[in-house]
């Protein structure tokens, strides 16, 4: 398979079949926490995409160029957390200076991402799957786009739920979790897609 096709397939795989939220169950806390409104969920998705792309790049470099040569790969989790935390801080400062508009759009979401398991998850996945540099970065971007898709869809559903008649005992989180479960079932339908395309 040539390169563009395989990248396209990789994209489909990351966004749909191996969606971070619906099939890997990573990043569920911002998924439930910041999905009240479509507008904020888009901002959160953008911020996550931004950080996950950069985090995959840096974690790849730290892992392959420092941890592997020193044979201390068991330190990967703690090293990744260190990298991500520092990176988010740095990105926040950089954005504040260079692009105040983007900063005010992402502002409050950036610090939230430091403790987002999806970011650590993508770094660990890249390591386990043995992706090279390009695919690590692509995996970060595409998975984050999948996350964005999921959170925006969820926000749309929740906005509709606001105005519908729901039994008292199901209002709020119960119905949200049920809808999330149904969406996960729907996304499971994509799992056959990839193998048939291959």
């Amino acid at each position: 398979m040539n390169e563009p096709t395989s990248i396209l397939l990789f994209f489909v795989s990351c966004v749909l079949t191996n969606n971070f939220i619906f099939s890997r169950f990573l990043g569920c806390c911002p998924f439930l926490g910041v999905s009240n409104k479509v507008e904020t969920s888009v901002s959160m998705g953008l911020a996550v995409t931004f950080v996950m792309t950069i985090a995959s790049l840096f974690c790849y470099m730290i892992y392959n160029w420092l941890l592997v040569p020193l044979e201390i790969t068991f330190m990967s989790t703690i090293a990744f957390i260190l990298v991500i935390a520092a990176l988010v801080q740095f990105v926040e400062m950089f954005l504040k200076k260079s692009s105040p508009t983007l900063y005010s759009a992402l502002g409050i979401y950036l610090p939230l991402i430091t403790t987002n398991c999806a970011v650590l998850g993508v770094a660990t996945l890249n390591m386990n799957e043995g992706y090279d540099l390009l695919y690590s970065v692509l995996n970060g971007t595409f998975s984050a786009l999948g996350f964005t898709l999921a959170i925006v869809l969820m926000a749309g559903v929740r906005e509709r739920l606001e105005s519908s008649h729901i039994p008292e005992c199901m209002k709020g989180f119960p119905i949200t979790l049920v809808s999330a479960g149904l969406m996960a079932v729907a996304f499971m339908g994509f799992s056959g897609l990839f193998s048939s395309l291959m």
Binding site: I72, M75, L82, M93, F94, K97
Partner: peptide
């Protein structure tokens, strides 16, 4: 190695962040 690496990484990130805080 593990201790050194984390120490060095921490120092480097700390340094970069301090620098960035001033610079940005």
């Amino acid at each position: 190695y593990a201790g050194l690496l984390l120490g060095v990484l921490g120092l480097v990130f700390g340094g970069v962040l301090t620098f960035a805080a001033k610079k940005f």
